[in-house]
Amino acid sequence: MEHTFSLPNSGHNYDAKASKLGMWLFLYTELLLFGGLFMVYMVYRSLNSDDFLIASFNLDVWLGAINTVVLLTSSMTIAMSITAIQLGNTKLSLRLQFLTVLAAVIFLVIKYFEWGAKIEHGLWPGMEHFISMPHGQQLYFYLYFFMTGLHGLHVVVGMIFILIVMNKIRKGSIHKNKHQLLENSGLYWHLVDLIWIYLFPLFYLIH
């Protein structure tokens, strides 16, 4: 930049607080994005509560519970990685982020087998078994695939976000005194966790 004079409140300065505020605002939009789906869930569940109950027995509570534990653990590791970088321990921070990404992969693998089993049973929209079910149960599976699918997509995005951050830490552009991007990726990851915290009881635990 060729200018000599710069304002104290310039938009070109590194401003961790602005970055954090921006991230939170983005999380609100994500919350409301899923919020729209929770609205649909609420309405259809209130209209077909018995069908939703029956359909929910098709899901494996224990797989869901394991995935919950996996995500909660990954939330802890990413939170700890922020502590590590604040204390200047870059190596530990990277390791903890690696564990988070690993947890994300485990989550997706379990999800893959869950979906695979559902599709094998013909529960994907349009399949034979699916069509023979009452409308309420069909709606349940529509929502199940849509909401967990979108959540899975967020897991992938969050994972990529953390990988980018890891790369930047290795290159040295994120460090002890400038780590807001890591915090942001952490916030995003916690959001993924938060949404799962609600998806889990709504689909698996409504017996």
Partner: peptide, 17 residues
């Protein structure tokens, strides 16, 4: 279940976030 989920969400938001 939703109450417990909300407590969990609050804990995540307050401490992890």
């Amino acid at each position: 279940a939703l109450f417990i989920a909300s407590v969990k969400a609050l804990v995540v938001a307050y401490y992890f976030m």
